[in-house]
Design a protein around this nucleic acid. Structure first.
Lengths: 114, 114
DNA sequence: TCCTTGTATTGATGTTCATCGAAGCACCAT
DNA sequence: ATGGTGCTTCGATGAACATCAATACAAGGA
């Protein structure tokens, strides 16, 4: 059933390691959160400034308030952003560590010598 | 809610730019493809070697053949992997460029203009 | 030419998801 | 208090998704 495979050569990878079931269950929700066009743009908007008020996000979309709020919740539960109410408004900020860990996971470990 | 993290004025970002609607529609499907635990593990397995036979992938999962085949198709249509039949078996390989572009997008430091 | 093995597609089913309107909560000003 | 504004939660709905069994396709061997 299983063919022999060549393992030795330094190859590009998702961090060069095979991801076990537990790690996949932990990491996949982050990618999933970024896997919606609205949330990807929301994350980029939030990441473009130290912090952003929800009131400033709504104008970028032709979506209802509840829908924006839903997507922000998904991003927050994935650990990609944090949020806090301050007085009347609610502010969100990016979680740089989460972005960095995902970026590192996708980074080819061995840059091809050109 | 959590406390806000202190951030310098040089702010992290998804490539330091706001993502417009068209770009989001193009990029989000790649993240979405990685947003399933099975596909994330499949991608990591494929990326761990120059190329992998489907027959070597099946053993890592308790899923039916058609389901594995479906997930491979999703990864392929997202542009993350390529595949080819050679004789009896079908082989898949990772698309390093796709991974690299996603990694760069998540990189906190703004890369040099390209 | 058949049979076997490996992989993909089809069709069906239960679940998850994106979205909205309505309602609720939090805060502020009067 | 009372009302108003900003955001979230609730409940519902139609679409998308993950999964499997059955079927089909492709290639090699008897």
């Amino acid at each position: 059933m299983e063919l022999p495979t060549i393992q030795s050569d330094a190859c590009c990878s998702l961090a060069g390691t095979v991801i076990d079931e537990a790690a996949a269950a932990r990491i996949a929700p982050m990618f999933k959160a970024l896997g919606d066009p609205v949330r990807l743009r929301l994350a980029a908007l939030i990441a473009s400034q130290p912090e952003v008020c929800v009131c400033d996000l709504q104008g970028h979309f032709t979506l209802s308030g509840p829908t924006i709020s839903h997507h922000l919740k998904v991003l927050r539960e994935a650990g990609l952003i944090g949020g806090e109410r301050r007085g009347t408004w609610v502010f969100y900020w990016i979680n740089p560590d989460a972005l960095q860990s995902l970026s590192a996971l996708l980074q080819p470990t061995v840059p091809a010598a050109s």
